[in-house]
């Protein structure tokens, strides 16, 4: 089973305060740690679990600047066999559609049985790349996959729908699945493991080598152009309780009591 897994290097904003830049078009990321996109971490783990069970290869692919090598090295340390980064200044400002085109230009000439991507990225949240890529490649897909059982030449997958309902599908391979979080337990990788993985192949390709022009990607080649970012207006104005932990706890306990909840 030869598997390609597409990953993205993203700023970790889960617990950080997000500050919008002066031009209103992006966020300040200088002080932010970058990580592998959470959904992709599950996709990589799933690819490696399949390889460990059935043999074959795992190739990790990303689109991004040199810093994104950190995410590829992490994939290699987890057990991917090789990594490829598509890199070009013209890619700046690409949306999910333009990224899918860049990935397609690479993957259309590769051998594979299965492509896994995260169901979405934590930064832009488009949720477009995987399903668009499958359409470009002319292979079947399933989005939001929470379980994969491989059979001879096909896969039975569970897609996650609303309210915890799952939809079970049988899909012929080669196919592309976008992976939902919680499908497995991503393994831990040590710094040492990442260092050792330096011996593995990490190839960098530019757009010209993939037969794409600058107009195919970036803002020009995208469906969407971001005009401005802003902080969402609050739906409610919460009353923020002030004071030491003990003070705020006392105030809150009184509020609950006054409503008959204690």
């Amino acid at each position: 089973m030869d598997i390609i897994v597409c990953v993205k290097h993203v700023p970790d904003t889960t617990e950080a305060e997000v500050v919008i830049t002066e031009d209103g078009k992006s966020i300040k990321t200088e002080d932010m740690p970058f990580v592998i996109n959470e959904w992709d971490e599950y996709a990589v783990e799933e690819a490696i679990l399949i390889k460990e069970r059935l043999g074959g290869t795992v190739t990790a692919v990303t689109v991004g600047p040199e810093e994104a090598d950190a995410t590829l090295r992490r994939c290699l340390a987890k057990g991917a066999d090789r990594a490829i980064r598509i890199s070009d200044e013209a890619l700046e400002g690409s949306d999910g559609y333009a990224i899918a085109k860049a990935l397609h230009s690479l993957i259309k000439d590769m051998q594979f049985d299965l492509i896994l991507t995260g169901a979405q990225a934590s930064d832009d949240g488009y949720g477009v790349v995987g399903v668009a890529l499958a359409e470009m490649l002319g292979i079947p897909h399933a989005a939001l996959v929470k379980k994969i059982e491989l059979k001879d030449g096909s896969a039975v997958v569970h897609r996650e729908l609303e309210g915890g309902l799952e939809e079970v599908l049988e899909v012929k391979l080669p196919a592309l699945f976008t992976i939902q979080t919680g499908i497995n337990e991503p393994r831990y990788v040590s710094i040492m493991g990442i260092r050792r993985a330096r011996a593995k192949e990490l190839k960098v390709l530019g757009l010209a080598e993939l037969g794409l022009g600058a107009g195919d990607v970036g803002v020009e080649g995208s469906w969407l152009r971001i005009q401005r970012l802003y902080t969402p207006p609050p739906k409610k104005q919460a009353t923020i309780l002030q004071g030491s932990p003990s003070d705020v706890a006392a105030q809150l306990a009184e509020i609950l009591k006054s409503r008959g909840l204690v």
Binding site: G96, Y97, A100, A119, G125, Y126, G127, V128, G130, V131, A132, A134, E135, M136, H141, A142, A143, L144, R159, E160, L161, E162, E167, W223, L224
Partner: peptide, 23 residues
Amino acid sequence: HTGFGVDLAPALAVELGVPLATD
């Protein structure tokens, strides 16, 4: 933008060459 829509819209947009904005 549901389990149904995310499985469908990007492929439909690529097939028709129609711009898509999600979510």
